[in-house]
Simulated scan of single mutants.
Amino acid sequence: MKILVLNGPNLNMLGSREKSIYGGFTYDELREAIERKCLEKGVVADLFQSNHEGDLVDRIQRIDYDAVVINAGALTHYSYSLRDALELFKGLKIEVHISNIFAREEFRSRSVISAVCKGTIAGLGLQGYLLAIEYAVFKSTLVFGSGGG
């Protein structure tokens, strides 16, 4: 099984931005935790972060993954091009947010990508990514049989 973990704008600044909202972990620590979880589960992980919408769209359009775990950052709230790219991808899609976007500013409570994702995990910090990976592996065993794919 191969999972694409996408992170949008400003997520590369984890650890130095609004720690009361996003926690104290850095982007490198997030990457390491995801890579450890994927190694533990026997999953190939492709991690990608960009502050540029088109780069994220291009990465999704490769469509060579079984699942996409995405934290689109601020693009969550207005990027129809990202939504359309996700809609083209027929594999499992899970939206993740470090903070609870529904308990923050009103504009953050709307996600244009949720409708094309299987589910959304919000407010659980770094753990949300790990839960999304667990779910993707679980779903793949149902689809592909034991062994994950």
Rank of each mutant, 00 (worst) to 15 (best):
K37Y: 08
R36N: 13
E35N: 11
S20F: 08
I70G: 01
V44C: 01
K41F: 04
N71M: 10
F25Y: 15
N10W: 11
L82T: 06
S16Y: 03
D46I: 11
G42H: 08
V57P: 01
F48D: 01
S79M: 08
Y80E: 07
E53V: 04
D28P: 00
E40I: 04
I70Q: 01
E18S: 13
T26F: 07
H52K: 07
E40D: 14
S81P: 04
A33N: 12
L14T: 13
Q49A: 05
L56T: 05
Y80N: 09
F48A: 06
P9R: 07
G42T: 04
I70H: 02
H77N: 14
R83P: 02
S20Y: 12
L14W: 12
T76S: 14
D58A: 12
A74G: 14
V44Q: 08
E35M: 13
N7F: 11
E18N: 12
N51C: 05
A67H: 01
I70T: 01
G8T: 08
E53S: 06
E32H: 06
I63A: 06
I70Y: 03
R36G: 00
S79P: 05
Q49N: 12
I21T: 15
R36D: 10
S16I: 15
S16Q: 14
V69G: 01
N71G: 05
A67G: 03
C38F: 03
D28Y: 09
Q49D: 05
Y80M: 14
